[in-house]
Design a protein around this nucleic acid. Sequence first.
RNA 1: GCGCCCUUAGCUCAGUUGGAUAGAGCAUCGGUUUUCUAAACCGAGGGUCGUAGGUUCGAAUCCUUCAGGGCGCGCCA
Length: 573
Amino acid sequence: MNIFNFYQKKIIETIKKNKRSLKISEVNFNGMQVELAPEKFNCDISTNIVMLLTKRYKKDLQTFAHDLKNLLIKQIKDFQNIEIAGSGFLNITLKEKSLLKIIEQILKNKDKYGSLKQNKKINIEFVSANPTGPMHVGHCRGAVLGDVISNLFLFNGNKVIKEYYVNDYGVQINNFVKSVYLRIREIKYKESFQNSPDLYPGDYIIDIAKNILKSHPKLNVDNYENCFNELKNKSLKLSLDSIKKDLKSLGIVHNNFVSETYLVNEDFVSKTINLLKKGSHIEEGFLQPPKGTENKNWKKIKRLIFKSTKFGDDNDRALQKNDGSWTYFANDVGYHNFKISKKYDLLINILGADHTGYIKRITAAVEAISNGKTKLNCKVSQLVKLFKDGKPFKMSKRAGDFVTLNEFLNEVDKDAIRFMMLNRSSDVELEFDFAKVIEKTKENPIFYVQYANARINSIFRSLKKNKDKKIQLSDGTINFNEIEKKILRKSFEWPKIVENSSNKLEPHRITFYLYELSTLFHSFWSKGNEEEKYRIIIDGKLNRSESLLILQLLSSVIRNGMQILGVSLPEKM
RNA sequence: GCGCCCUUAGCUCAGUUGGAUAGAGCAUCGGUUUUCUAAACCGAGGGUCGUAGGUUCGAAUCCUUCAGGGCGCGCCA
């Protein structure tokens, strides 16, 4: 239940019904907001409707505000009081009984509270790291972002396919296989591995080589060409398995792995190119030499070009290389047509910051292929900088210059990584200090939220009460104290947080929200040490049932949030 | 040269389709424990929301100018 939507509807209905007495004709509610007022106003909901309508119908603000106030109080029985702020906001306080009704409804909704109850089919592509080496920290942020966005859409009732595009095609793969080949020969024939710029030097290649030798000791590696295919399949599988294993340690499991080679071999790429030709989005021609940096490989050759400038891209894009084979982009266009053919309502791509420039061309391709029917939403995640105690951190160089996800997971647990990766908007660089995330203090937000919930549990334990069981209030009169009301109001905001996070693909709003919610709780808890009337338990007995109800609500919201984040919530700490 | 992102307190950052006196954490200073978990809480100081214009009842938020930082600009993937 979203109380803002609920009361917005009621207010609109009431105004419509009373157009005549309010002396307005056609009513236009565009821009109307019903939301939580800043804390200092001490009310439950507030709306800007007066400012909107007086401007639209040129009424006197104070007069109209008073008329509307009287009308709403009389006709909407949940409203206890309405204050008119100087600026024209109506600040509404709800009756305690109505608050109770809302809480009960929320608790009945349980783990569905806040769900947008959509029913769409969504494809989200994320990670898609090259299968030529292990995952590193750089991949991690996009991985968590994609996974939590998936969880959000699932929470909202959608069908979500999490997809990984495997770039198992092209020169880099050949270099990768060649590296494995040379490592195998190194082991078998003691030929020393000579590094060169187009080979992969990392130790993980040795692991792959050993692994292949172990399971296939009789593999003939005398001739590279002869064993290439077998070697390629085995190496890729091992590499991908290790990536999947790392992802799983982060709590991430994709539903689909789509192979680039498969798409090329099944002619998906050429079919897509033909489709685009029919729509005259492709021509044969010449491109301008690249601007900015110089490029040695550039050649003026007639080739197939996708006219992405028609869709707002800076340049048209090549679909063929010098030798006539497809470019990475051409294959990706094929891949996106593959997705379009599966009739999704929405496509989402999570990209790294270095792929920002790629967005326009691929969005253009999707628009061209689907005639604007399929929407592709690209989200970029900025860089992660590792720190330890405020100093830049580098780990061992097993895989080259970057820290592997595996090494990272040895230092920090999955929950901390997931939470911290979302403790910033994905638009800004993230400083990840992992001395901090293993701390057990307020400075570590994940701990702070988990601790709040553990404390709530401890209250229910002490009272020997079941947290999930309905709480009967002792007598008819309900009276929430001011801090309980703060928690209540914050909990009412949860559906809005879900909505915004989901619509804008910004799940960091959830981590911030949970932190703020936890602050209110810790404050409530400590208040009991100062004044007895705020204590939840006195002499082993429950002081006020209202408190327990609020805690039940609070814990339920925290649980929903953490579930979407995929972060665990210990019973006890 | 072009595109995208960023610029808010000493530091790291939030800020709802434009709303009320711009908010957190850290750091600094001062307080709170015979009591449900002090792994916590409370209080104080700290701001020209990068700059200059514009749009309007109302701008950190929208438009334009300029400045600073990051990423990218392949016929690599």
